[in-house]
Deep mutational scan, measured.
Amino acid sequence: VHTTPGLPSGWEERKDAKGRTYYVNHNNRTTTWTRPIMQLAEDG
């Protein structure tokens, strides 16, 4: 699994054909234009 540093585990930053940045979530095979926020791990 490709992961971009600074993004949550399983996420990758890519660019489309027009050079726009988007983000790929390999965990559930989705994409988004919005940069994901790293969540702190919570117990329980």
Results as ranks from 00 to 15, higher is better:
residue 28 N to V: 05
residue 21 T to G: 01
residue 39 Q to H: 09
residue 31 T to I: 08
residue 33 W to K: 15
residue 16 D to Q: 00
residue 1 V to E: 12
residue 8 P to N: 12
residue 11 W to G: 01
residue 19 G to M: 07
residue 40 L to A: 15
residue 36 P to I: 01
residue 42 E to K: 07
residue 29 R to E: 07
residue 22 Y to A: 02
residue 1 V to D: 13
residue 5 P to W: 13
residue 2 H to C: 12
residue 43 D to C: 10
residue 35 R to W: 01
residue 32 T to P: 00
residue 3 T to Q: 03
residue 29 R to D: 11
residue 11 W to P: 00
residue 21 T to I: 12
residue 27 N to K: 12
residue 24 V to S: 02
residue 8 P to T: 08
residue 11 W to K: 06
residue 23 Y to V: 02
residue 23 Y to M: 00
residue 37 I to V: 14
residue 29 R to T: 10
residue 38 M to T: 13
residue 7 L to D: 13
residue 22 Y to P: 04
residue 35 R to N: 00
residue 18 K to W: 01
residue 28 N to R: 06
residue 20 R to G: 09
residue 23 Y to P: 02
residue 42 E to H: 13
residue 23 Y to K: 03
residue 41 A to V: 09
residue 19 G to A: 09
residue 12 E to D: 05
residue 2 H to Q: 09
residue 10 G to E: 03
residue 6 G to M: 13
residue 3 T to E: 13
residue 33 W to I: 06
residue 8 P to E: 10
residue 37 I to D: 13
residue 3 T to C: 10
residue 44 G to D: 09
residue 30 T to S: 11
residue 34 T to K: 13
residue 12 E to Q: 12
residue 27 N to C: 08
residue 20 R to Q: 15
residue 1 V to S: 02
residue 2 H to E: 11
residue 20 R to A: 15
residue 3 T to A: 05
residue 15 K to G: 00
residue 42 E to C: 11
residue 12 E to A: 06
residue 2 H to L: 06
residue 40 L to G: 14
residue 41 A to W: 07
residue 31 T to Y: 04
residue 4 T to A: 05
residue 30 T to P: 01
residue 33 W to S: 06
residue 13 E to G: 03
residue 22 Y to G: 01
residue 26 H to V: 08
residue 26 H to T: 08
residue 41 A to N: 11
residue 3 T to S: 08
residue 10 G to Q: 02
residue 23 Y to R: 02
residue 31 T to E: 06
residue 41 A to S: 11
residue 33 W to N: 04
residue 3 T to M: 12
residue 13 E to Q: 11
residue 24 V to R: 05
residue 11 W to T: 02
residue 24 V to L: 08
residue 37 I to W: 06
residue 41 A to G: 11
residue 2 H to D: 13
residue 21 T to L: 07
residue 23 Y to L: 02
residue 26 H to E: 13
residue 43 D to Y: 08
residue 2 H to A: 07
residue 39 Q to M: 10
residue 6 G to H: 08
residue 18 K to R: 09
residue 28 N to W: 10
residue 12 E to C: 06
residue 43 D to K: 12
residue 26 H to W: 10
residue 23 Y to G: 02
residue 37 I to N: 14
residue 14 R to K: 14
residue 41 A to D: 13
residue 38 M to K: 14
residue 5 P to C: 15
residue 42 E to R: 11
residue 30 T to H: 05
residue 24 V to A: 06
residue 6 G to N: 14
residue 2 H to K: 15
residue 43 D to L: 07
residue 27 N to Q: 10
residue 32 T to S: 09
residue 3 T to Y: 15
residue 8 P to W: 04
residue 36 P to H: 00
residue 16 D to H: 00
residue 41 A to P: 14
residue 12 E to L: 03
residue 42 E to I: 01
residue 1 V to I: 07
residue 41 A to Y: 04
residue 6 G to C: 13
residue 36 P to G: 02
residue 42 E to D: 12
residue 40 L to C: 12
residue 39 Q to V: 09
residue 43 D to H: 09
residue 28 N to C: 10
residue 15 K to W: 09
residue 25 N to T: 03
residue 25 N to K: 01
residue 24 V to W: 04
residue 33 W to P: 06
residue 16 D to L: 00
residue 40 L to T: 12
residue 43 D to T: 13
residue 34 T to E: 14
residue 39 Q to W: 07
residue 18 K to S: 09
residue 2 H to T: 15
residue 38 M to E: 12
residue 10 G to D: 03
residue 37 I to R: 11
residue 32 T to M: 03
residue 16 D to G: 01
residue 12 E to W: 01
residue 9 S to E: 15
residue 7 L to W: 04
residue 25 N to P: 01
residue 35 R to H: 11
residue 38 M to Y: 11
residue 22 Y to H: 00
residue 5 P to A: 14
residue 42 E to W: 07
residue 31 T to L: 05
residue 7 L to M: 09
residue 8 P to H: 02
residue 39 Q to G: 12
residue 21 T to W: 04
residue 16 D to F: 00
residue 9 S to G: 12
residue 34 T to L: 11
residue 9 S to F: 09
residue 4 T to D: 11
residue 6 G to Q: 13
residue 23 Y to S: 04
residue 1 V to A: 05
